[in-house]
Design a protein around this nucleic acid. Structure first.
Length: 747
DNA sequence: CACCTTGTGTTTTTT
DNA sequence: ACACAAGGTG
């Protein structure tokens, strides 16, 4: 057994990887570039620790997604025999949830607390703002929510916030809302996402004996995606590793893409300061990408100023250039993408699961879904409107949440009048008043009210029905079957019938089938239930931390659609990145800040380096988004790729004939030659009437040049895309000596 | 007092 | 395109 492991390690690892795997004691930081075998290192390291005789219960492994955790469990089982249930492996959130359920009592947390997702927490914040007479139109609740979330990540409590945040109108508002929000969370017996980690740190800070207990359990700590660790997570790790100092972190600062969530890649660079005796290992050989793809990725990311200079190398073959696909609009983009996929299936003997389509924002998935459906191509959509986030599913789950925790006011508010029970805002306020007078919970006040005969209200009957469903659910739960409880809710609330009257037939059908799917998920959960904690509590916890990514199945032959954020850690033979346009990618909200722009660039790097053999980049000249159509400029990231690594692809789809695009495409192709022959342009050259050549759009005639906010804006009429305004600073323009025929012909 | 209609504002990425 | 809040109606 032991020898088998040793041999496997030597055979399947390079010397740096081997070093990372077999350095058992002390702090280790591994800088692992994209595709350098990071997952393999972590897997083998755990296997090796077990092989060295370290009990499985003494290892903590933190991954970025549940899916990564499950995958890792499976892969370890391939090397050594383990009982995967004994291994502490999961996301920060799931691990902290487990710790708080076990030991939260020390900070007066009940073990049956509910986890609020972002929507729940925003709804509670709105309530708090209304209660404090803050005009929701003047102050955006989302901004308040984000500020509170940021505070928790920065370990700033509601008491400390006013002292730390300075002064001002907004700060005053957040101060009061934050305090009230915390109070309400406690009353709801609930924690929000940030609390899971934040309260665990508080627990460890306040209760040294509890901390000591976990320090003894987690003698060896491994952290994946360390570049995406934020302050509160860093503090958690620091506390846990403080005693035995066996902390092993793996990451890549070029792949840090979660700064919006407080991630700070400098923790990775600061590791050596925290642990001066740390061993630092660099993995720079890429085993995934072709040379051209890797170089193109490097072209982009090297434009970042805040980064450790490094260059990955690969022994893989040179490969083919990155392909640029120019599309007329977002529909055309989906069409062309699918056409390319079909071609490759036919000629290269590919299967659908060799392909992934990536985009910057979830909203972009729609067009691809529609096009794939129309062509009967199997696909799986990852992320987006996640299953457990859908309205009908959340409504249904709200009932289960109330059965589990009657203090969950957010869920009560959600469904007390759904289906309609004649319970409006006024009636609710009346119950609240009663709860306040009787010093009891809202739920208990409902009971009191129903007992009083004189309390006649129009909603009384409805309230009785609501309470009856919940009480029946609680009784049924005692008997043990979760599925029975769910069925009861399904039948007694009549939600399916409601849905049919509420929505159009096809939409209602969809929603009802989602609920059926939920019932079957509950059934499956019950089958695998291990009985370590109350079943409903266990189910709800899984639901709240579950992501669609966990559902992804790479085995099935389906095209995958997802955001670039979700694709981190995965690889595909052929990658399509859509929407390579200014404003979309980089996203316009990131445009203002240099840091944010650099993060977009890293995101681009992550996308590129998912591809093993082929990478397609596409952009649409016109895009409809958020209900309006806008003309777009190619992403600056396209300009950053050196010319020998990128190739414009000429595709004709049936639609092109109708729009006369074919003619334009051919003139663009000629223009590309002119661009490389042309001379660099200076500001003085740009007078009205001059013919210029754009790297992507080809020839155009200068109409105007003006200065706005000390930026030089050029107005050009292009043969291909018509009139555009360009910023001189970024525009890839050249002057052509001869007046090309294409431009002459146009007037 | 609850419900339905109209109008308004907002839209990144994820645990 | 969508959600959500205010205002009118039964």
């Amino acid at each position: 057994m032991s020898n088998k492991v040793k041999k496997t390690l030597k055979d399947s690892l390079n010397s740096q990887q081997y070093d990372a795997v077999t350095t058992v004691n002390g702090p280790v930081a591994v800088f692992a570039g994209a595709g350098s075998g990071k997952t393999r290192v972590i897997t083998y390291r755990i296997a090796n620790l077990l092989n060295e005789g370290i009990p499985i219960t003494n290892i903590l492994a933190v991954t970025f997604t549940n899916k990564a955790a499950n995958e890792m469990k499976e892969r370890i089982q391939g090397v050594v025999e383990i009982d995967p249930k004994k291994l502490w492996i999961g996301t920060f959130h799931s691990i902290c949830l487990r710790i708080l359920r076990q030991s939260g009592k020390a900070i007066s947390l009940r073990p049956d607390f509910t986890v609020f997702d972002e929507e729940d927490s925003l709804s509670l914040i709105k309530d708090c703002m209304k209660e404090s007479n803050i005009d929701i139109k003047r102050v955006n609740p989302r901004t308040v929510s984000k500020t509170i979330s940021d505070s928790k990540v920065a370990l700033v409590s509601s008491e400390d916030y006013p002292n730390v945040a300075g002064t001002g109108y907004f700060v005053d508002i957040v101060s009061s809302v934050y305090a009230l929000y915390e109070k309400r969370l406690r009353e709801n017996n609930a924690l929000d996402f940030d609390d899971l980690i934040y309260k665990t740190v508080i627990l460890f800070q306040n209760e040294p004996s509890t901390l000591d207990q976990y320090q003894e359990i987690f003698k060896h700590i491994l952290v994946d995606e360390y570049q995406d660790v934020n302050a509160v997570q860093y503090e958690l790790l620091r506390l846990l590793a403080n005693k035995h100092r066996n902390i092993f972190v793996v990451g890549d600062d070029d792949q840090s893409i979660y700064a919006f969530r407080g991630a700070d890649p400098t923790y990775m660079l600061r590791f050596r300061q925290e642990y001066p005796d740390a061993k630092v290992i660099k993995l720079e050989e890429n085993y995934r990408c072709s040379q051209m793809i890797l170089n193109a990725a490097h072209c982009v990311v090297q434009n970042n100023e805040k980064r450790e200079e490094k260059k990955l190398w690969t022994n893989n073959e040179k490969g083919t250039p990155v392909k640029l696909v120019v599309c007329s609009n977002e529909k055309d983009e989906a069409q062309k993408t699918i056409q390319l996929i079909q071609e490759r299936i036919k000629t290269q003997n590919r299967t659908y699961n060799d392909f992934v389509v990536l985009y910057r924002i979830n909203a972009a998935s729609r067009n691809f879904e529609e096009a794939l459906m129309a062509d009967d191509i199997p696909y799986q959509l990852v992320g987006g409107y996640r299953f457990y986030q859908r309205k009908e599913v959340k409504d249904f789950i709200a009932y289960l949440r109330i059965v589990n925790n009657p203090d969950d006011r957010v869920s009560i508010n959600r469904v007390i009048n759904y289906p309609k029970r004649n319970i409006g805002a006024v009636f609710i306020r009346k119950i609240e008043k009663m709860a306040h007078e009787d010093q009891c919970s809202f739920y208990d006040a409902c009971h009191h009210l129903l007992k009083k005969k004189e309390a006649v209200a129009r909603g009384r009957k409805g309230l009785q029905e609501f309470i009856d469903v919940v009480e029946a659910g609680r009784k049924l739960l005692q008997k043990g079957s979760l599925l029975d409880v769910a069925k009861l809710v399904y039948e007694r609330t009549n939600i399916p019938t409601m849905l049919e009257t509420e929505y159009a037939e096809d939409i209602a059908k969809d929603k009802v089938s989602n609920l059926r799917e939920l019932l079957s998920a509950i059934h499956d959960f019950e089958q695998q239930y291990d009985g370590t904690e109350p079943i409903l509590q266990a189910f709800l916890a899984q639901v709240s931390l579950f992501t669609d990514l966990d559902n992804m199945d790479p085995e099935q032959s389906r095209v995958t659609l997802m955001t670039i954020h979700s694709v981190k850690g995965l690889e595909f033979p052929i990658v399509f990145m859509a929407g390579m346009e200014e404003g979309l990618f980089p996203h316009y909200l990131s445009n203002c800040k240099q840091n944010a722009l650099e993060e977009e660039r890293r995101l681009c790097y992550v996308g590129f380096t998912r591809a093993k053999t082929e990478l397609y980049l596409s952009y649409a000249m016109n895009r409809e988004l958020y209900g309006k159509t806008t003309k777009s400029t190619p992403s600056r990231f396209l300009e950053e790729i050196s010319e020998d690594l990128i190739e414009r692809l000429k595709i004709s789809t049936p639609r092109d004939g109708e729009t006369g695009l074919k003619r334009k495409v051919s003139s663009v192709n000629r223009s590309k030659k002119d661009y490389s022959k042309g001379n660099p342009v200076s500001l003085g050259d740009l007078t009205a009437g001059k013919i210029v050549c754009h790297k992507i759009w080809g020839h155009g005639i200068v109409l105007d040049l003006k200065e706005i906010d000390s930026e030089h804006i050029i107005h050009i009429d292009f043969d291909t895309v018509g009139e555009r305004m360009l910023n001189f600073k970024y525009a890839p323009l050249r002057i052509v000596e001869e007046v090309p025929t294409a431009a002459k012909g146009k007037s």
